[in-house]
C-alpha cells in the first residue's frame, strides 16, 4: 500500500505502518499522530526515540517491557498514546506493529 503524508509517498502495511524506517521523519510522525488524535509533546518524542532504539536493537516490544524500561511507566504510556499505546506509538515511530499478545 502507498500513503501520502507530508507530501511524501510512503510504503505502508494494510494497517498503515511504515515498512521502511528510513522513510520516516519528524513531519511524518506529526502527521500520523494527528490522524490518531495526538499532538506530540517533548515527552512523546522521548518515548518514540526510545521505541525506535529498541527496534533497532531488535528488542521485542511488550507492555511488560515498558514496565521494566525505566523510561516511562504503563500508566503514562496509556495517557500519552490512548486507544492502545503499543499499537499507536509504534505506528507514529515508523516501526512494525508489535506481534506480542502481552
Amino acid at each position: 500500500m502507498d500513503l501520502n503524508i507530508a507530501g511524501i509517498r510512503l510504503d505502508v502495511t494494510e494497517d498503515g505502518y511504515l515498512t521502511d524506517l528510513s522513510q520516516w521523519n519528524e513531519d511524518i510522525a506529526i502527521e500520523i499522530a494527528k490522524q490518531e488524535g495526538i499532538e506530540l509533546t517533548d515527552r512523546h518524542w522521548e518515548v518514540l526515540t526510545w521505541i525506535q532504539e529498541q527496534v533497532k536493537k531488535e528488542v521485542a516490544l511488550s507492555i511488560r517491557g515498558i514496565k521494566k524500561s525505566g523510561v516511562l511507566n504503563i500508566k503514562e504510556f496509556y495517557a500519552l498514546f490512548p486507544g492502545g499505546p503499543l499499537k499507536v506509538s509504534t505506528k507514529i515511530a515508523g516501526v512494525p506493529k508489535p506481534k506480542s499478545c502481552i
Binding site: A60, I63, R64, K67, I74, S100
Partner: peptide, 18 residues
C-alpha cells in the same frame, strides 16, 4: 521464556493499564 509475567506482576500491569 515467552516473557509472560508472574501473576503478581501481571495484576500490576493490568491495574496500571486501566
Amino acid at each position: 521464556k515467552l516473557d509472560m509475567p508472574p501473576i503478581g506482576e501481571f495484576l500490576e500491569i493490568l491495574s496500571d493499564s486501566g
